[in-house]
Design a protein around this nucleic acid. Structure first.
Lengths: 194, 194
DNA sequence: ACACAATCTTGACACCGTTAAGATTGTAAC
DNA sequence: GTTACAATCTTAACGGTGTCAAGATTGTGT
């Protein structure tokens, strides 16, 4: 691992982390393979030993961000003793929005492209489902079942929940949005107001 | 207006329409000044006589799309005899989502950047507010007032309504979304389910 | 007829993603 | 230890991009 000539040692991960740094510093639109390579001190074509294309690197960075996102969501409900309390869903929703308010650059990056599978239906294949929505599904189904909700209504309700928090995150992370209240304390009121 | 040498005649509008065509045909990411110029039969630098930058052209195209969008929203409620019927808000919401389902390319384009002002609060300056949200505001306030809703709750409710339909549009226009039902007939159920 | 401003072209620059060809290095087999 | 091989990285080049400077063309008003 000497003074790194040629072999970097851990270039793949370094490229991902440099990409994260670039997105945070200059925004999603400023992410480029050449800048990321330069940040890692390698030539412009070096990334192609680890990624097939820029989109491939973006996918890897996206996965990296989603892992962080999932940690936040899971931490937000791990203290709930009663896993059947509807408050659990509010907690998750609140943290969904706050994650992107705290990292506004991540929102257009995570949702810019087409790269993730989403299964909105309650039946069907969930194996490759977008992890945050899959988490909502698995947590919401038992809670709503206990409330006596039909399967049809349940599907609508779960989509509605995701749409609300996702839309709120989208709106709150827009650049020229003026809101004279504190998101952290208001999100809950807004979500409830359905 | 002969056989257009040099002076095109209506290049500014032609560039905007060519941009629209390009977005519909190849997607937002494929929009480029040079392609748009080529579509209009002018040189690569010609657009700079009418737009300061690519972003400036994008803003003009965005305005053009938003005008179409506003026509759809206004048409969706012009037949409502009772302007105080809450159904009016559902109608608008449904058409908000359907506009982007019918034109999926427009969603990432209209909401990609930072160029529009948004005032979420009920007070404050609405003169340059994002027109679709401003329309929702002006229509929702009298309806919710008649229902006896407080101003504080009203603000939350209006934000919540926008978030829900906006999130629904965002989700429905994602590329790899699987939904085994018809959006047109289900949107209303999903919105109601709050 | 002239002057001027608006409009458009040509040519260049830096940056970008991507590829081909080849150089360097770690590793496993002998 | 030497040798072969695969992985990794570099250099050089291609076409595409936004942008700017210089100058050519044209409509318009004096």
């Amino acid at each position: 691992m000497q003074n790194r000539q040629y072999h970097h040692g851990d270039l793949r991960n370094s490229l991902i982390e440099a990409g994260i740094e670039l997105i945070n510093r200059e925004g999603t639109s400023q992410l480029s393979l050449r800048k990321v390579a330069a940040l890692c001190g390698v030539s412009q074509a070096a990334p192609y030993s680890h990624f097939q294309s820029k989109e491939d690197l973006q996918d890897a960075i996206r996965d990296y961000v989603i892992v962080q996102f999932m940690e936040v969501l899971e931490n937000s409900i791990k203290d709930c003793t009663d896993q059947n309390n509807p408050r659990l869903l509010i907690q998750m929703g609140k943290n969904y929005v706050m994650f992107f308010i705290k990292n506004p650059q991540y929102f257009p990056f995570v949702f810019s492209q087409q790269c993730m599978e989403v299964n909105l239906s309650l039946d069907g294949d969930d194996t490759r489902n977008f992890p945050p929505f899959q988490l909502l599904k698995t947590k919401a189904v038992p809670i709503l079942s206990k409330l006596g909700m039909s399967k049809e209504k349940m599907e609508d309700a779960i989509i509605s929940m995701w749409a609300t928090v996702h839309g709120l995150a989208s709106i709150a992370t827009m650049k020229n949005v003026h809101y004279n209240k504190d998101w952290e304390t208001k999100i809950e009121d807004i979500i409830w107001n359905k």
